[in-house]
Design a protein around this nucleic acid. Structure first.
Lengths: 336, 336
DNA sequence: TTGAAAGCGCTAACAG
DNA sequence: CTGTTAGCGCTTTCAA
C-alpha cells in the first residue's frame, strides 16, 4: 500500500488539507478538529514528507558537511560537535567524505547544493572556494573550517585555529625542555601547516635557534613518515646538529611517527622528544605531549553559525592549548 | 537574485520545461537543442533541485545512517565504508549520532522516515525494531548492523559479526597462551555482548575452565572501568584464582582498561594479559592482540544492500579475525 | 523530437 | 477558525 498523504488524512478527518497542514505545524485550530486530525494521522500511519516541505521553503533543514578524512581525530570530534547542534535544532546532517581526494570536493559541494542544504560546513582546500563563494552569495550560509575564508562575502564564515600560536606554543615548550635541534613533519601545503611552521620558526628564532628547511618534511600519509624521517635525520647529522625532537604538525601522522621511532629503537623521550598537534584518546596513555584544538567546540560553533542565520561574515579564531605529558622529557614542574 | 529554475532555463533556451528535463536526465534530444539548453544552464548558473526530484520519485537518493557513538573505531570505519559506496552511487549519506541515548533512536528513525531516505542503516538497539519493521514493510530497505534483524520482513536486512565465534577465538587464543583465570569487561546487555560471552564461556568449558559470573562485569563507559576491574580482581582473589587476563568485549573500553592497568603498575603481558575486540590504529603500536571485525567491509556491504534494492531479506554474518600481537605473552610461533 | 498539461505532497494567501 | 485556490520546481504521459 502506498504511503498516506496529507490528502488521505484530510479525507479521513473530514477537513481540508489546509487544516491538516495547520494542525501538523501547530497553528491555531479548534481542539476538536485537531483531535480528529491526529486520530487520522495515527490510523493512517501518516508521516509528513520533508522533501515536499523543502520544495516549498526553497531549502531543506539539512546541514551539509564535507570532511577530508573522517579518520583524523580532529574531524571526528568536529563531526560530533556538529551533530550535537543539529540534533538540538531538529536538523539533520548530510555527510560526505572526500578521502583526501581533492577532485571530489567540488562534486560534493555541487551535490550539497542540489540538495538545497540549509548550510554547508566544509573542510576542503581552496579548490572549492569559487563554488563556495557563489553558494554563499546566493544565501546559503557556509562555514570553512580550519582555514580562513577567502574573502569578505556575506554568509561565508570561517572558524580556524590560531595556527601561528600553535607553532609558538610548541616552540616555547620545546625550549623550556631544553631542546635545540628540531625536525618537523607536516601534512602538505595547506595554510594551516605553513602558519604552524611560521609560528614555530619565528619563536625559535627569538631564542637564536634556526629551523632549516631541510629538516621540515611533508608526509601526506602515514606511509611517507619513514622516508621523511630518514631525510630529516640525515640532513641534520650532516651539519652536525643531530635531531633531538620530532614535531608532528598534523594528528594523522602521530601514530606512524611514534611507531617508526620505536622500530628504530629510539626511546621517547630519552633518545628523542615527540610533540604533536591534536589530542586523541591514546595520547594520554602513551604520555604524548600535544597541542590540542578544541575540535568538538569548533563543530558546535560552526553548526551554530548556520542555525543562527546571520549573514554577516564571521571569522572565528580559536586558541590552541598545550597539554603537557612526558614525551618531551618534561621536568617535575609542568608548565601548565 | 533568486535561483534559476527549470522554467528560466526553458525560456532562455527557447524550449519547453519538458525538454530541459529531458536534457538534464540524458534522454534523447536533438544535439542542437541540447546544446542550447546546456548553454542556458551555464549562463543562468542553474542547479537542479534534488528535493523536487525526490517529491516526484517518492523518495530521496539519500542513505540514512543512525550511529550509536561515532567515537568507537567500529562505527567510524563502518561509516567510511558506507560513504564509499554512497559516493560511488552518487547518493548522499544522512547521519545522526545517538550519543548512546536510547530515547533518541526512535526520534531519529522518524526523522529519516520524514526525509524519505532511500534506505536506512542502523546500529540501534531493539527499541526501534517496531518502527524499523514498519519502515521496511512500506518498502524502504533497512539494514540493522551488529545485530540480527528481529524477523523475516521484506526489505529488512542485517549484517553482523559471528559473535559466538569471536568469543571462541578469544578463548582459544588465551588457552594457547596458557591463561587460566579470565576477567571480562563488556558493554552492556546487547545481544552482541552476550553472544561473545557465551562463545568465550563455552570454549573455555571445553578446556575445563569455568567463567564465573562474578568476573564478568559491565562498563558502559570508560569511567566505569576502574570500578569494574576492582570487582573482578577482588572476586577472583576471594576464590584463590587471581586473574591473569582481561578481555575487553567492546572497543570503546580498551583505552581506559589499558590505562587503569598501567596506573596500577600491572605490566602487560608479564603481570596480566589483555585482549580486546576491534582493531584500531594504535593497537599495533602498543602490541595489543585483538579480534577484529571487518568494519569497513560491513559498511560497504550494508550500503550495497540498500543500493541493490533487493526485497528479499538477507542476514549476512561476517567472520571475526584474530590479530596476534604481544599483549597475551604470545610465544615465538604465532598462531596465525 | 518536442510541447502542453496534469500532478507529486505540501504550504500560504485570501476569503468566508 | 476553516476551506478554496494557486502555486513550489520538477517529471511524465499524451498528442502533435
Amino acid at each position: 500500500m502506498p504511503r498516506a498523504t496529507i490528502n488521505d488524512v484530510a479525507t479521513a478527518a473530514n477537513v481540508s488539507t489546509a487544516t491538516v497542514s495547520r494542525v501538523l505545524n501547530g497553528h491555531k485550530v479548534t481542539s476538536s478538529t485537531s483531535d480528529r486530525v491526529w486520530a487520522a494521522v495515527g490510523t493512517l500511519d501518516y508521516t509528513p514528507n520533508a522533501l515536499t516541505r523543502g520544495v516549498f521553503a526553497g531549502r531543506s533543514n539539512t546541514i551539509g558537511v564535507i570532511i577530508r578524512d573522517l579518520n583524523s581525530p580532529f574531524y571526528l570530534e568536529l563531526m560530533r560537535g556538529i551533530d550535537k547542534v543539529a540534533t538540538h535544532d531538529r536538523s539533520l546532517v548530510m555527510f560526505a567524505n572526500t578521502f583526501n581526494q581533492i577532485e571530489r570536493e567540488a562534486a560534493h559541494v555541487q551535490t550539497m547544493d542540489e540538495q538545497r542544504v540549509r548550510g554547508l560546513i566544509l573542510t576542503t582546500g581552496p579548490s572549492t572556494d569559487d563554488r563556495t563563494k557563489h553558494f554563499a552569495e546566493r544565501g546559503t550560509p557556509c562555514v570553512i573550517v580550519a582555514r580562513k575564508a577567502p574573502d569578505l562575502v556575506p554568509n561565508l564564515h570561517s572558524i580556524a585555529l590560531d595556527n601561528h600560536e600553535a607553532g609558538r606554543l610548541i616552540a616555547t615548550h620545546l625550549i623550556e625542555c631544553g631542546k635545540k635541534s628540531i625536525g618537523v613533519l607536516h601534512g602538505g601545503s595547506r595554510t594551516s601547516q605553513s602558519e604552524r611552521i611560521d609560528g614555530l620558526r619565528e619563536t625559535l628564532a627569538e631564542y637564536d635557534l634556526t629551523l632549516h628547511d631541510d629538516v621540515v618534511h611533508v608526509a601526506e600519509s602515514g606511509n611517507d613518515v619513514s622516508v621523511a624521517l630518514d631525510e630529516i635525520f640525515t640532513n641534520a647529522r650532516a651539519v652536525g646538529r643531530p635531531i633531538d625532537t620530532i614535531v608532528c604538525l598534523t594528528g594523522l601522522l602521530t601514530t606512524r611517527t611514534y611507531e617508526v621511532l620505536n622500530e628504530r629503537g629510539c626511546h621517547i623521550p630519552e633518545d628523542i622528544a615527540l610533540i604533536a598537534m591534536d589530542d586523541f584518546p591514546w595520547a594520554k596513555t602513551l604520555g604524548i605531549t600535544v597541542v590540542a584544538q578544541p575540535s568538538f567546540d569548533m563543530g558546535v560553533e560552526a553548526a551554530t553559525l548556520i542555525t543562527n542565520g546571520n549573514d554577516h561574515p564571521q571569522h572565528i579564531v580559536k586558541n590552541p592549548r598545550l597539554v603537557v605529558r612526558q614525551s618531551c622529557g618534561e621536568s617535575e614542574e609542568p608548565t601548565e
